[in-house]
Design a protein around this nucleic acid. Structure first.
Lengths: 351, 351
DNA sequence: CGGTCGATTGACAGCGTTGACAATTCCACT
DNA sequence: AGTGGAATTGTCAACGCTGTCAATCGACCG
C-alpha cells in the first residue's frame, strides 16, 4: 500500500483575503497591522475573510517589505534553569505581539564576540536583544548593538548604562531581609559566600548582607567571607574554609542555592547537625533548594516575570527622535524571602 | 552636550558585493549558497568582496525568494535544565549551516494545540521542528506538522512513528547496567521509582531494571514499585511508602535524579545512614546529582549532543520523492553510568 | 449645488534575494 | 578556423507584503 505523501498546500496570500473581503491587499495589510484609518465595517469584513481562509501572514515577506523582522534575540552565555524559565516568560510576552524569540548562546570569553554579535543582528535584523548576565556587562556586546542601532535590555547588569533599559531585582533589599532572618534568630557570627566577581548579583547581595550587619552594629570577619563563584564545587571549598575557621560561624549566607547546597554538604561531612548547629541560606530558589534536606531558606526570583518584562521593554521601545533621549524604563521587581528548614535559632553560648 | 544618535547605517546588499566583484548578483548568490558551477577564481573574487564589505545576506529576503526560512523550531513543554542544554547543542549545529533556532513553549495539555502548532509553522515557514517529550508523543502535534509537510524529529518518543526520524538514547541498556551495579554489590531487594506514565524514559528504564533483575533470577516486589512522576515532591511520598514497607529494601532505583534526591531526603529523615544502610541511584546526571551528599550514582545523558543530532537530522533531511519513503535515521546515543557515593555494598544479613 | 477637507481606500513600486532559463564563454576536436 | 557541448554567468521576473502617494468618498459649509 504505497503511501501518497501529501504535498505542501499553497498557503493563502494576502491577495486571496483581499479578494474574499472585496478590498485591496493594502487594506488587508492595514487591518493586520492594526493601522488606524480603516472603517470599522471594512475591518470586520476583512477579519472575517482572514478567519474564513485561516490566513497567516508570511513573516519573511512582512519583514522584507516593512524593514523589520518580528524577531527578538535572547543572548545568553550559560544554559541552565534560569535561562529556560526566563525564555519561557519572554516568549509569552512576544506572542502577545506576534513576535518571536531567537535564542543565541554566546561565549562571554570569546575574543571575537563583537563580530559574532554583529553578524547575528545583521543577518536577522533583530528588533531588539535581551542580554542575560554576564553578557549584559560586556562593552563589546553593547557597542556592537549600539553601532547597529538595535535596542537592548540588560538583565541585572552590574552597572546601568545611561540610556539603556534594564531589568533588575532588588537583590540588595532581599539580601538585607534574609540577613535579618538570621540576625533575628540570634546569629551574630555569620559567614558569607560570594558569587562570581563582576556580577551584579554578587555585589548587591553582599551589600545587602553588610547593610543588615552594620545596622546591627556587627562587623564582618573577613576570614568568613569567601568566594564561591556561584558554583557548587567552588562552594564546597569555600564552605570548608569557612567551617575550618578558628571560631566557627553559626550561620552561612550563600550567594546562591548551589553554593548553599555545598555548604549543607560540607557541614554534614564534618558532622554538624543541621540546622541546629549551623543555619544556611541560599538565593534564587533554584530547584535544588527544595531537593535537599533541610530545605533551603532562600529568595525567590520571579524569573518568568522578568523574562516577560524584558521582552515588553523591547516591544514598547519606540525609536526616539534623535538627540532626545527618551526616559529609560527600569522596572524593579520584588523578591520574596522564603523561609524553610535550613535556618534555626543560633545555638546558645555563641553570642 | 546633546547626544547625536547614530542612525542605522544602510546595510550592504548583494548588489554592492556583485559590483565590487565585477559579477552579477546571481553569481554572488551562487557563491553564498555554495552552488556548484562557479569557477574557482570567480568564487574567490566574490568571497573577497563579501569579506571586504562585511556583507551579511538578508535572511528575510532569502527566505521570501527561496521559499525557505532558515528557521528550525524547537517545541517544548516544560522548561528546565534539560531544555537549555539541549537547545544550546541544537543551536551549535544550526550555526554550522547558517540556520537559526526558534524556541516555542507549547502546552501539551492545551486542547487547541493543533491550531497553535499550525499557526506557528505557517507564520514562520519553519524548515523543521524538533519535538521534546512529551510533545513528541502527541498525535495532534504530529498530524499538524505532517499536514503542513514539515519534517519533525521526535526526541525520545514513546513509540517511534513509521517514517519519522527520532533521537533516542538506550535508556534500557543503561538502566540494566545501573541495576547490575546494585546487584553486583549484593543488593537483592531493590525498590523502583517510576517516572511519569506515558514517557518513553519511564518505560525503558523500568524495563532495563526488570531485565537485570530477571537475569539474576530475582522477582520484583510490586510493593516496592511506586510512581513518582519524575518530580521531587512525588518522589518523597513514594520513597516514604517504599521505606515504610514491611521489609525494607536495601536499595532504591529512582527513574531520575530529582526523585533520587527525594529518596535521599526521605531516608535521612528516618535516620538511615547513607549509603551504608540504603543505596540509591538516579538517572540523568542532573545538576542536583552532585549537589547532595552522598552524590548520586546515575546515568549521564549527552544532552547537548542529542540537541546537535536532532538539529542535524532536520538539516540533513531531504524531501523525498513522493511514495518513496527514505530510510529514517535513528541515531542511538550511548549513555554513561557514573558511579558516585550513593551506592555501597548491601548491608549483611539481608540476602 | 459646487467646493473643501478629512477619512478611507487603492495603485504601484519596491524590499533583497533566488528560480528559471537564456546568453556567453571555454575547450576539445574536426 | 569551425563546431558542438559543457561550463559558467547573466537577465528578469517573481516571492508576499508594506510604504508612498494619489484617488475616491462623504459630510458639511456657504
Amino acid at each position: 500500500m504505497p503511501s501518497r505523501s501529501t504535498p505542501v498546500r499553497e498557503s493563502t496570500t494576502i491577495e486571496r483575503v483581499a479578494e474574499q473581503a472585496g478590498v485591496s491587499a493594502k487594506t488587508v495589510s492595514r487591518v493586520i497591522n492594526s493601522e488606524p484609518g480603516v472603517r470599522a465595517e471594512t475591518r470586520e469584513r476583512v477579519m472575517a475573510a482572514i478567519e474564513r481562509l485561516d490566513y497567516q501572514p508570511n513573516l519573511a515577506a512582512r519583514g522584507l517589505a516593512g524593514a523589520r523582522s518580528f524577531l527578538i534575540g535572547l543572548f545568553y552565555d550559560k544554559p541552565g534553569d534560569y535561562l529556560s524559565e526566563f525564555q519561557t516568560g519572554a516568549v509569552q510576552r512576544c506572542r502577545e505581539s506576534n513576535l518571536h524569540l531567537m535564542v543565541e548562546p554566546l561565549e562571554a570569553a570569546n575574543p571575537d564576540l563583537a563580530r559574532a554579535v554583529s553578524t547575528l543582528i545583521r543577518q536577522l535584523r533583530l528588533e531588539g536583544v535581551i542580554l542575560l548576565p554576564p553578557l549584559s556587562d560586556l562593552p563589546a556586546v553593547h557597542s556592537a548593538l549600539e553601532h547597529a542601532g538595535i535596542p537592548a535590555v540588560d538583565i541585572a547588569p552590574r552597572q546601568r548604562r545611561a540610556a539603556a533599559p534594564s531589568v533588575d531585582t532588588d537583590d540588595r533589599a532581599a539580601a538585607r531581609q534574609l540577613t535579618l532572618e538570621l540576625l533575628g534568630r540570634g546569629h551574630r557570627r555569620i559567614a558569607f559566600m560570594l558569587g562570581r566577581a563582576g556580577h551584579r548579583a554578587t555585589e548587591q547581595r553582599y551589600l545587602g548582607f553588610t547593610d543588615a550587619m552594620q545596622a546591627h552594629g556587627l562587623t564582618v570577619d573577613p576570614q568568613l567571607v569567601q568566594s564561591g563563584n556561584f558554583e557548587f564545587a567552588d562552594g564546597l571549598e569555600c564552605a570548608r574554609r569557612i567551617l575550618g575557621a578558628a571560631e566557627r560561624p553559626s550561620a552561612i549566607f550563600a550567594s546562591n542555592d548551589d553554593m548553599a547546597a555545598a555548604a549543607v554538604c560540607a557541614a554534614r561531612q564534618i558532622g554538624l547537625a543541621l540546622p541546629e548547629q549551623l543555619s544556611i541560606t541560599g538565593f534564587d530558589d533554584a530547584p535544588v533548594a527544595t531537593m535537599i534536606w533541610p530545605q533551603l531558606t532562600t529568595v525567590r526570583q520571579p524569573v518568568r516575570a522578568i523574562g516577560r518584562i524584558a521582552a515588553d521593554l523591547i516591544i514598547q521601545h519606540k525609536p526616539h527622535r534623535r538627540g532626545w533621549p527618551q526616559p529609560v524604563p527600569r522596572p524593579h521587581l520584588d523578591l520574596e524571602v522564603i523561609v524553610r528548614g535550613s535556618i534555626a535559632p543560633a545555638p546558645p553560648g555563641k553570642t
